[in-house]
C-alpha cells in the first residue's frame, strides 16, 4: 500500500479536515471534496444488497452489509465475489425466488463460509485473476462459534479473503440464543434473566478481533454502523492488503436487543460512545489505531434502550451494572479510546 493512498484515509485526517458543518460524520456533505464523501452518498453506489430483502425493520446487519460491500465494490472497481454463512443475512436476502444481492454471491453452510471463500480465492489464484477479490461474511454465531475453525484456518493460510463478521450478539435468526459473542448480562432465549446472575454469564465469551490479531494477519479492524466514514475507510483499507483480513462490525438487532427499529444507528453509536464497543485497527497483530469516543456517555444510557438489559438496571442488580461499567472502563484503557 502506497503512502499516498493511506494519507487521505488516515483517521486523524478526518479530525483535522476544515470544518464543514458536519465534517465527515454524516453520510454525505455537499461541501466536502468527493474523496471525503462516503460511497453511500453517491447515486453510483453499487447497492450490493438491494431493496426487497426481508430483514426486520431497522436491521443493522442489512445496513452493515450494504455499507461494507459497496465500499469494497468501489475499492475494487466492482470486482467482488461474496460468500455468506447461513444466518439472518442469508435468509432474508435469498428466499427463493428472489435474491436481493446484485453481486456474485454464494451461500453454502453455517460453519464453512471462510473455507468457501478461501476456495474461491484459490480458484481466482489458479486462473491468474488478481483483480477479483473475495469477501466472506457471517453473523457472530457463524463466525465466533460454528465457523471458528474454518476462519482460523483461513487466517492461518493467510488466504486472500476479507472476512466480515456482523456481530449482533447472538443467534437472532433462530430466535435469539446466546453465542460466544453475546455480551455479559444480556438476555437471550438460552440465558434468561432469572436467578442470581440473570442473563449471559460474565467472564465468558470470545472477542474475535483480538483472536484474529493473534493470528498476525495483515489487517484487523472493528467498525460500527453509526460511523459510516470510519467503516468505509476500514473496508477500503482492508482491500489494499493481500492475505487474510478481518473486520468485525457491530450491528444492532431490534429483535434480539429489544430496541426500537428507529434506534439501530443510535444504539450503534451509543455502544461506541459508552466504551462497550471499541473501534480500532491492527496490522500484523499490532494495534495501530483506535477511533476516539466523541461524547462519552454512561453505559446505562446505552443499556436502558435495550430490553435485553432491562434486569441490569433494577436496583438489586447494581453488581451487574458495575461489572458492565468495568468492562467499558477496561476497553477504554486497553484500546485507548479517549
Amino acid at each position: 500500500m502506497s503512502k499516498e493512498e493511506t494519507s487521505t484515509l488516515n483517521p486523524s485526517s478526518r479530525q483535522t479536515v476544515k470544518f464543514y458543518q458536519t465534517g465527515t460524520f454524516t453520510v454525505g456533505n455537499r461541501l466536502l471534496d468527493e474523496e471525503f464523501r462516503t460511497v453511500q452518498a453517491t447515486t453510483e453506489r453499487s447497492n450490493s444488497l438491494d431493496s426487497g430483502h426481508r430483514a426486520c425493520q431497522g436491521c443493522g446487519q442489512a445496513l452493515g452489509a450494504r455499507y461494507a460491500l459497496d465500499a469494497a465494490m468501489r475499492a475494487t472497481d466492482n470486482k467482488i465475489i461474496a460468500a455468506n454463512a447461513t444466518g439472518c443475512l442469508e435468509v432474508f436476502t435469498t428466499p427463493y425466488p428472489e435474491t436481493a444481492w446484485s453481486i456474485p454471491w454464494v451461500h453454502s453452510l453455517f460453519g464453512n463460509v471462510a473455507a468457501v471463500a478461501s476456495g474461491i480465492a484459490a480458484a481466482l489464484k489458479s486462473k491468474g485473476d488478481s483483480t477479483t477479490r473475495v469477501i466472506a461474511q457471517g453473523g457472530d454465531g457463524g463466525t465466533t462459534d460454528i465457523g471458528f475453525g474454518c476462519l482460523s484456518g483461513m487466517f492461518d493460510r493467510n488466504d486472500d479473503v476479507l472476512y466480515i463478521c456482523y456481530d449482533n450478539g447472538g443467534y437472532m435468526n433462530t430466535g435469539v440464543q446466546r453465542s460466544s459473542a453475546t455480551p455479559a448480562a444480556a438476555r437471550t432465549a438460552t440465558t434468561m434473566p432469572v436467578g442470581d446472575n440473570p442473563g449471559s454469564s460474565f467472564n465468558t465469551g470470545k472477542y474475535l478481533p483480538t483472536i484474529a490479531m493473534a493470528h498476525e494477519i495483515p489487517y484487523v479492524a472493528t467498525a460500527s454502523v453509526h460511523d459510516l466514514h470510519d467503516l468505509e475507510r476500514k473496508v477500503e483499507k482492508a482491500m489494499t492488503f493481500r492475505g487474510a483480513r478481518y473486520i468485525h462490525i457491530n450491528v444492532p438487532c431490534p429483535l434480539g436487543w429489544g430496541s426500537q427499529p428507529a434506534f439501530t444507528i443510535k444504539l450503534s453509536r451509543m455502544g461506541v460512545e459508552c466504551g462497550l464497543v471499541p473501534l480500532f485497527e491492527a496490522e500484523n497483530g499490532q494495534l495501530t489505531d483506535s477511533t476516539k469516543i466523541r461524547y462519552r456517555i454512561p453505559v446505562e444510557e446505552y443499556l436502558k434502550l435495550q430490553r435485553r438489559f432491562a434486569h441490569v438496571l433494577k436496583p438489586h442488580n447494581t453488581h451487574q451494572l458495575d461489572a458492565i461499567r468495568a468492562i467499558a472502563e477496561n476497553n477504554i484503557k486497553r484500546f485507548n479510546l479517549l
Partner: peptide
C-alpha cells in the same frame, strides 16, 4: 442534503 437518510 447531508445524505444521511439516503445512506442509512
Amino acid at each position: 442534503e447531508c445524505d444521511n437518510c439516503y445512506g442509512i
